[in-house]
């Protein structure tokens, strides 16, 4: 398998390594953190470039404003805090001072989704993709593993404009090619298939590959595509795959409202309507628990993708979805 992995690593650690690298390469890179330097793995950057690292304390709104201001003078600010505090808490600051003002700020958000685990729903934001994708001009990226997160950091530093980069807390299989260039807005084909297209993002990408194996054993050929960039969406890749398979599963660690699945449904409904099944949180808040337990309880696990694929295929053949 092309997606074998030798170790599990945190996506946030990929962010930290990527940030250090772009910091070494580009003297205009600056970083800001709201009292979560170790959690965000920004300590290496802070140590290497103390004059370019700004500890703002527990004041996320101020952090977003300062980041916007730092761009005036040519800096490329990377802000770091949990996804909840990177978006919901500071929506108006991002909207006015960054997005509407067209500022070159990279909003880097860790601990997104249910896999944050035991801290519970206060911290498990499942609405952030929706919030960010609704802002005109905002690029929205959700990476799937350590390597991809690191490569995404190296890509967004060269993109002029605001970016929301979403990643997570736990160690997960590190399976993507460390040397694969990250191209914003270009989806990655992971498997070729005929029966169903599975579009996955973030931590659900590896689970989609596990589902692919199970489906293959049952004689179902699934095309798994990694939608690491939710905005701008790679509509060409999506249409090409769906034209072949005729049905869709979308899989994401996010509310079904406002997520990647909704973006794909919105696009396909205008050009090529096909049956689509959503593997996403069903308009709920999360709760405390271990990441794996939560993913299972909220139906974001491998069997959920397998079942969704079968339902999509059934509907394609004219069957009805009784779920």
């Amino acid at each position: 398998m092309a997606w074998n992995f030798s170790e599990k690593k945190e996506t946030r650690a990929g962010f930290g390594e990527g940030l250090l690298e772009v910091g070494k390469e580009n003297p205009n890179v600056v970083a800001l953190c709201a009292d979560l330097t170790e959690s965000l793995k920004m300590d290496a950057f802070a140590k290497a470039f103390p004059e370019r690292f700004f500890q703002v304390g527990i004041a996320e709104a101020n952090m977003m404003g300062i980041a916007a201001g730092l761009t005036i003078g040519g800096k490329i600010p990377f802000t770091g805090t949990f996804a909840n505090f990177s978006t919901g808490r500071v929506y108006d600051q991002i909207r006015q001072s960054i997005a509407y003002s067209g500022k070159n700020v990279k909003i880097c958000a860790s601990h997104a989704g249910l896999t944050l685990g035991e801290d519970g729903a206060t911290h498990q934001i499942l609405e952030d993709i929706g919030l960010m994708k609704m802002l005109p001009g905002m690029t929205v990226i959700n990476t799937c593993d350590f390597n991809q997160t690191k490569n995404a950091v190296k890509a967004i530093v060269n993109h002029i404009g605001p970016v929301y980069l979403r990643f997570g807390r736990p160690a997960v299989p590190n399976f993507t090619d460390p040397n694969a260039p990250f191209i914003i807005g270009k989806a990655l084909h992971l498997t070729e298939g005929e029966d169903v297209s599975i579009f996955a993002t973030g931590h659900l990408v590896y689970k989609a590959l596990q589902a692919y194996e199970i489906l293959k054993d049952e004689g179902i050929s699934a095309e798994v595509i990694n939608i690491h960039t939710i905005k701008p969406l790679d509509t060409e890749a999506i249409l090409k795959s769906v034209s072949k398979t005729g049905c869709v599963v979308t899989a994401e660690e996010h509310n079904k409202f406002g997520g990647m699945g909704e973006s794909i449904a919105g696009y396909l409904s205008t050009v090529y309507p096909v049956p689509q099944e959503f593997v996403a949180v069903n308009d709920q808040f999360g709760e405390s628990g271990k990441p794996d337990e939560l993913m299972k309880k909220y139906h974001l696990d491998v069997p959920d993708i397998v079942e969704a694929a079968k339902r999509a295929i059934l509907r394609k053949k004219g069957g009805r979805n009784n779920c």
């Binding site: 300062i66 916007a68 201001g69 005036i72 040519g74 001072s97």
Partner: peptide
């Protein structure tokens, strides 16, 4: 004020 501070830091 936050924006102005950012510009001053730059």
């Amino acid at each position: 004020m936050s924006v102005a501070i950012g510009a001053a830091l730059a």
